[in-house]
Design a protein around this nucleic acid. Structure first.
Lengths: 217, 217
DNA sequence: CGGGAATGAATGAATGTTCATTCATGCCGG
DNA sequence: CCGGCATGAATGAACATTCATTCATTCCCG
């Protein structure tokens, strides 16, 4: 029985050289973009010869897709295992905090992986398996948010997909700010922002008059 | 005195062929990424010969930067002219709505431009002028948010840069969801989401205990 | 020694850029 | 008016460079 361990848990993770190539590719793809970097630069960063990469991966594109699938899968694992496992009977805010912590934990533990995912989510080079991983995350989050809405914990005036987009987008925005203005926006900002983000999605006690919901625009 | 007109207001906008090249480049960069596309494909899309591009732009990189500067500038113009001009004595929510409308207006009017900006904000190919445009937007937004906090309209438990990152990130997340799941997330979602985003940044009547405000940062 | 793993120079396809040539346009001397 | 001429924008084949990929060779371990 294999033991899924370490950051990128994968069946083939055992081979350390393979892992070094993956790590190097992650770094180079982040700095230069998939199409913007060349294979020798990945090899150099990994400390192997160019040809060695092709012993482990059939192509540059396959390397990208394996990275994408691996890290998107790790993000999903964290979300499902650490985030969505709470019983919805719990305090809504506590459930959200758990969820937010799972998200920000990934971002803080693996900032390079998060940046890589953000940077390459739209690439035409992603294959069907990679898109499948992305959809799997969305499906898990969707079911969770729908449940939260039905229980009355999350606001119901937005489609579940919208709430997910807002939260994930806010996190991504925070990450970008942190990378760009590291001094102004510290890593502790992730925890502090939980309050604000929670106010965005919770079924709020709106003091403003909620105008009749049919002529909103 | 020149007359700044039309979407991409620029000194050299008069030349229609130059504009066709810029439009084509915007589309191709969006579909394939700067490094992922080649110059002939831009020329073909623009309906000109490859060499013609080099009569108007010194290099592929310069073309990217002009696009970036132009559209980031247009976004800033909309934000400053249409968004931030309200007197802070106004109703806070109204001010925010005006601001949100300016943002979403840009996104809806020029979705390709917004996608281009999102896609290329981190490229190492951006020159100093392009980065300057980006900083100019941030500065304008920062001043506005700081004012809003001092007036007491915006929540003060988050750094101004954080609030900006959260709002802009939420918008970007919404945009991505809209592009990805167009049926589930319509364009009206932008307007509806204003409520949720406002709840995130407003100085809220938090029913949860507001921890003592002296160890904020 | 033998066999698989690693190497990195070689390969050929693709890319950004150039430039000799074409061609529509406006000008001018008759 | 007209016919030839000068102009410079437009063209796209050609060029040099860069890139992903291959493979003959070397290396290393059992």
């Amino acid at each position: 029985m294999p033991e899924p361990r370490s950051a990128a848990t994968n069946a083939a993770t055992e081979d350390p050289k393979r892992q070094k190539i993956l790590d190097a590719a992650l770094a180079v793809f982040c700095e230069r973009t998939f199409a913007g970097c060349n294979v020798p630069s990945i090899a150099e960063r990994a400390g192997v010869a160019t040809g060695t990469i092709y012993r482990y991966f059939p192509s540059k594109e396959a390397l990208l897709n394996e990275l994408y699938r691996t890290w998107k899968g790790e993000l999903r694992r964290r979300l499902v295992d650490d985030g969505l496992r709470l019983d919805p009977g719990d305090d809504a805010r506590a459930v959200f905090d758990h969820w937010w912590t799972a998200l920000t934990g990934f971002v803080c533990d693996e900032p390079q992986a998060f940046e890589f995912l953000e940077l390459h989510h739209h690439e035409p080079y992603l294959d069907d398996d990679s898109h499948g991983e992305a959809l799997a995350i969305d499906a898990a989050a969707l079911a969770f948010v729908e449940a939260g809405q039905q229980v009355g914990a999350l606001r119901a005036d937005q489609a579940p997909a919208v709430l997910i987009a807002l939260v994930y987008g806010a996190l991504a925005g925070l990450f970008r700010a942190h990378r760009l203005y590291g001094e102004l926006v510290g890593t502790d900002a992730y925890d502090q922002a939980a309050d604000a983000v929670w106010d965005m999605v919770r079924n709020g006690t709106t003091p403003d008059p909620t105008p009749d919901p049919k002529d909103e625009r």
